Amino acid sequence: MSIDEKLLALGITLPAAAAPAAAYVMHAQSGDQVFLSGHIAKKDGKPWVGQLGRDLGTEDGKQAARLVAIDLISTLKAACGGDLGRVKRIVKVMSLVNSTPDFTEQHLVTNGASELLVEVFGDAGRHARSAFGVAQIPLGACVEIELIAELA
Rank of each mutant, 00 (worst) to 15 (best):
A23E: 15
Y24L: 10
M26D: 07
M26C: 10
S30Y: 15
S30E: 15
F35Q: 11
F35M: 10
L36N: 03
S37E: 10
K42D: 06
K43T: 06
K43G: 04
D44Y: 09
D44P: 01
D44A: 15
G45V: 02
W48G: 01
W48E: 12
V49D: 02
G50T: 05
G50F: 06
G53C: 02
R54T: 08
L56E: 02
T58W: 02
E59N: 15
D60F: 04
G61D: 04
K62L: 09
Q63C: 04
A64F: 03
A65I: 00
A65M: 01
R66T: 00
L67A: 12
V68C: 09
A69W: 03
I70F: 04
I70L: 06
I70N: 04
D71E: 12
L72F: 00
I73V: 13
I73W: 05
T75Q: 09
L76Y: 01
K77R: 14
K77L: 00
K77A: 04
A78M: 10
A78D: 14
A79N: 06
C80T: 08
L84Q: 01
R86M: 13
K88G: 10
K92S: 08
M94C: 11
S95D: 05
L96M: 12
V97Y: 00
N98F: 02
N98G: 01
S99N: 11
T100E: 12
D102C: 09
D102Y: 13
D102Q: 14
Q106T: 11
H107K: 14
V109D: 02
V109P: 05
V109L: 00
N111V: 08
G112R: 02
A113I: 00
A113Y: 00
S114A: 13
E115V: 14
L116W: 05
L117I: 01
L117P: 00
V118L: 08
E119R: 15
G122R: 08
G122I: 04
D123F: 10
A124R: 15
